[in-house]
Every structure is written in structure tokens, then in C-alpha cells.
Design a protein around this nucleic acid. Sequence first.
DNA 1: GCATATTATGCCAACGTTGGCACATTTGCT
DNA 2: AGCAAATGTGCCAACGTTGGCATAATATGC
Lengths: 325, 325
Amino acid sequence: MAGLKEVAAASGVSIRTVMRALSGQGYIDSQTRERVVTQAQRLGYRPNLAARSLKTARSFDISVVAWSMDELHIAKIAGLEQTLRHAGYAVNVLLESAANTGGDWLENVLLHRPAGVALFSSSQFHNEQALRLLDSKLPYIVFDAPTGPLDSVRIDRQQGVYEAVLYLAATGRRAIAYLGTQADRSRLDGYLRALGQLSRRPIYIEQAEGDQYAAGIAASQRFSELPKAKRPDAVLAYADEVGLGFMAGLHERGIRIPSDVAVIGFDDRRAAALSWPRLTTVAQPSRELGIAAAEILLRKIKGEAEPSTGWSRTMPTKLVLRESA
Amino acid sequence: MAGLKEVAAASGVSIRTVMRALSGQGYIDSQTRERVVTQAQRLGYRPNLAARSLKTARSFDISVVAWSMDELHIAKIAGLEQTLRHAGYAVNVLLESAANTGGDWLENVLLHRPAGVALFSSSQFHNEQALRLLDSKLPYIVFDAPTGPLDSVRIDRQQGVYEAVLYLAATGRRAIAYLGTQADRSRLDGYLRALGQLSRRPIYIEQAEGDQYAAGIAASQRFSELPKAKRPDAVLAYADEVGLGFMAGLHERGIRIPSDVAVIGFDDRRAAALSWPRLTTVAQPSRELGIAAAEILLRKIKGEAEPSTGWSRTMPTKLVLRESA
DNA sequence: GCATATTATGCCAACGTTGGCACATTTGCT
DNA sequence: AGCAAATGTGCCAACGTTGGCATAATATGC
């Protein structure tokens, strides 16, 4: 309710002086400052952010754009929000699911003139869509963008899988299979790299399309049809959901985990810690990813240089050991 | 980049006329309008929201405040966001976890002068905290507030549990136990109401404090120590996590689900659909809750009456049938 | 005591939009 | 033709903050 004007009147000084007292910039008598600050407090002065944005032609909003909200996004957003808020920015969420206005997402973002944008990559935003960020000249960061010209924070999937496979080998597993699709190279490459190092031949269990849990169950069926001697004794699943489905199918068929087969998932969804046995999995440092994204965004906003190196950042995963492996 | 001024210059009319052309309010020659609209399009006119907010003294932001992001919040936020965006509002997220600035959450909200606030109730925001919303005079809605003076959208937990128990009885279960704490009355009341109707005596399995999954496992231990004849053949768990822990413990002890014991959870977390067997559970209509909250907020903002009835809304749950019961 | 920094304060315009008001033009009616 | 109503357009002030500039008061150096 109270603006600079009211505070000025109450303290018997001009608006300009109130500004100086509150912003701490420029010369000001310390007694005057104290008097003004007291009055501001008493009157409950709150700067009008709209007026400030109008005048300074810059905003303190960051738009976070995602196709849909996913459990995996949340921790990232939390880290992002925390960091940005510390820096005085507010986080604005735009969910671009099909159900929404149908307007163009970027147009929607630009309308709000945010100081920056964070985009969650997904099949809907891949490249053609996301590349438009470059034209917009807005400071931006993309979560988990595919390799390309976009600045992005990513996790090292390849390395994550690599380490998981080595862990399985270290715990005495002889035949380690990869349950996934050929589409995602990074995970597959990690698997192949590890097997190469172990001088073993890869074993593929193809993941069916569609629902991942169902695909896991389907895979367990094919698995159980193998003669016992030829069954892998460890499976690295493309994602937690696949791994959980696979485990469910194994339970159904009386195959024991981890004694008969060890299973490792990927993502560390909450469900991985609530299954039986609890699923060992490769976790992303989600909160840290969010923080890293925020920091990049803030540096971009400040206009710090380093254009040559780009702003991408890849972070390591962490193997979360539970009972399934 | 282009403002009303530029569009006005390009179309050879005054700013005021451009406004009329674009807002569609007041008299305007249709040819002029067309010309102006064309120019606006060509120049990529985007209204300056800050200027608008400043001038009209109202904003089109809604602050969503939560202590932390939770899987269960997301779907609600999605529904909320969708509805609010349709109405021209943007959703602003404030996470008030301990890690944050330490500033007062309400102060933070007020600083942004949102058109309204949606608060996710939690132990941190219970009553003393949330009641301050009333003083703020801001349009607000609380998700899942405890019974009290606050306008809120809630689910009918009592009825949800009631129906779940009746379902268990209908499928031939004779001894239906309640695994939970005495603290939460609504669920317990639903259980008691159902048992009363069935003329059966309640069976309690006390849920330990702390981690819910662990509490479920602990409960399964006590359960398995009962002589077989005295074991309940159905368990209604306070929450999915408890139920999942309970199931895990039963697996460990060779007790079969659902043949020996049926288990029903509460919440329909994602993990409930990824367990083995998949957990039957009481689901909240999350998206609809979000939409309902948004609608209430919008009506409050519009200043529609009905102060006598309040704005609370309770919505029914839905029993999601899976294999665990 | 005077000139010159230094410190302290105030005035004013501007950001882009909006709404009140006034003016100009056209239409409809007697 | 005359007058009122309806239609079309423009001017101007204001929202609260900010930054440039000017002025006033005090301190510093000779």
C-alpha cells in the first residue's frame, strides 16, 4: 500500500532521498537514512515491482517451461528456484501440455519478458522447437538437451551406466545384460564400454515400445524362457520403470532377486526406493542440476563472457545401492 | 520491442486508437482496426505487462506456495496452471523449504502483489502460518487445509477409506485391519464407519513413526508373528508408502498378496502402479483438485459473492483397482 | 577567507499503458 | 434543415519507480 511517496512524506524528505536510503546507493546522511528506513518499516513499504520493471526495462522473472510435470523435474525445479530466489528472481512455470491454450510456448514466454528461460527438454521440445530460443536472444538454459548448439545441463548417462555395469561385475556377476532400446545411445554406449573393458560379449534384451513397466514384464517373460544356464545373472535396465516391471515379472515366475538375477535401474525415481527388493539405480544429482542451471542462467543474465566455451555442463550420476543388486 | 507508440506511428493513428483496435473496446472503424491489427502483427507488438500492471494496479500472477515439491502436488499444480493460464494468469512458484532465504513466505508473496495465492498445506503451514492469509485480504485457496476457517479444496478421505473397506468386504475379506496412526482422524473414521456398518470389530496395526516404508516393514513383522488363524486377510494402509513397505515385508516372509492378505493403499503415487503386485489404492482427483482451486481463485478475484457459504470444496476419491486387492 | 572537493538532497522526465474527457464526424429522426 | 444520438478519434494525466542533472550544505586545502 505504501509507496516511496508515503515514506517520503512520513520522513520529511524527498522521494529521491528515500530511494537512496533504501537502495544504499549514493551519498546520504546516516541519520536521515535511519529515519527513512524506520518509516519505511513502519509503513510497510514494498517496492512496486511492476513500476520498477517498467522503468528499468528488465524483469526479475525466470520462466520455466516444461511439456508436463514429471517427478524427475521437481527436484531440479526446487534447486533452480532456491538459487534464483536467492538472487532475487521469481520462478514462473509454464506447462505446455496439449491441453493448454494452444498458443505458441515461446510467444507466451516472450510476452512475460522474463530475464531468462529454463526449458525442460522432451520429445515435444526437441531441436526445431528449442532452437528458437537462440533467435529469441533471451538468456536460457535447457535441461538435458540432446547434443547440439543449445546450452544445457546434462548428466553423464554413459558414465553412469558404465559404473553400474562395473559394479555388477565387481560383485561377481558373470553375464550382464542390457535391457533397453537401441535408440538411446548414451546408455548403450556406457554399457558397451564397460563390457569392452571386461572383455565380455554384450547381451541384449530388447525393450518393447510403449509403457515401460509393461515392457519390463514382457522382457521378463522372454528372460524366463531361456534355459537356466543361459540366463544372464544381472540386468541393467534402461529406466527404473522398466526395471520394476522386469522385477515384477520375475517375481511372478519365481525367479529371485538378487540371488538369481541382479537388477539395476536408471533415474532413481521414488518408486525405486519403495519396491521389493528396493531397486539399485543410477541417480541424477537433480537438485544440483537445478542449481547449476540457475547459476548458468544468472551468469548469462549478468552478461559474463565466455561465449567460446558455451555454457553447457555435464554432471556425474551416482549409483544408489539398494537390495536389488 | 514494439510498443503501442510504434504501432500507432506505423498505422498513422494515435496510441489511443491502437488501444481500441487491439482491445476491441469502444467505437472504432473496422478498416482502421484492421490496419492497426495488421501493423501490430507485422511489428510483433507485445503489450508491456509491467506497464499494464502498474497502471491498472492489478497483476495477472498467481503465487503457488509449497513447503516442498511433492509428487502429489504436481498434478494439482498442472490443473491449476492450465486453468489459470486459460484465464490469462501466470503461475509463480515459491518453494519455502528451510534452505530458502529464511524470509517470511507471506512477505515474499505480498512483494510480488499477485492476484491470488494457492497454498499447499503441510505441517509447516498449518494454521498459525496459513491463517495470516486471511489478514492479507488476498484471494487465496488452500490445498487440503485442516478443518477451520480457511477456504480450501480437499478430498473426502473418510469416504475414500470407507469405500475401500467396503470393497474389501465385498470381495470376501473377513478380517480387515487398519494400518495407520491414530492421529489422522478422517481416514480412521472412514474405516470405523465401514466396520460399523459391517458389524465387525476394528483391528488396528499401529504404524510406527518416521519413515513410512520402514514403518510398513515393521508392521509386517508384527503381522507375521500372529498365529495364522488370527491374521487379518486384508489391510488398509494409511498411505501407499506404508502399504508398499508392508507388502515388501510380507514378501520377505513368504506371505502372499493378495491370496493371503489383500492390501490397499492411499494416494495413488506412481510407485503404486510400479510395485509387485501393483497396489490397489485410493486416488485423489489431483488434476481436478487443481482445476477446482483455480476456479475458486478466479471467482474470488472477480469478487463474486457467496461469502456466507465460503469457498471450500470437497471432492470424492476414486478407488483404483489393481492386483494387490 | 576563499576556492574547490565532497557530501547531501531535491526536481524532473521518462518507462508503456490506461481511462477520463473532449472533440470531430457521421447517422438517424423530425 | 436542424438537432440529437451514435460513432470515431485524439489529448492528457497518471500509475511508482528510476536516473540524470542541479542545487545546497558541509568539509578540505591553501
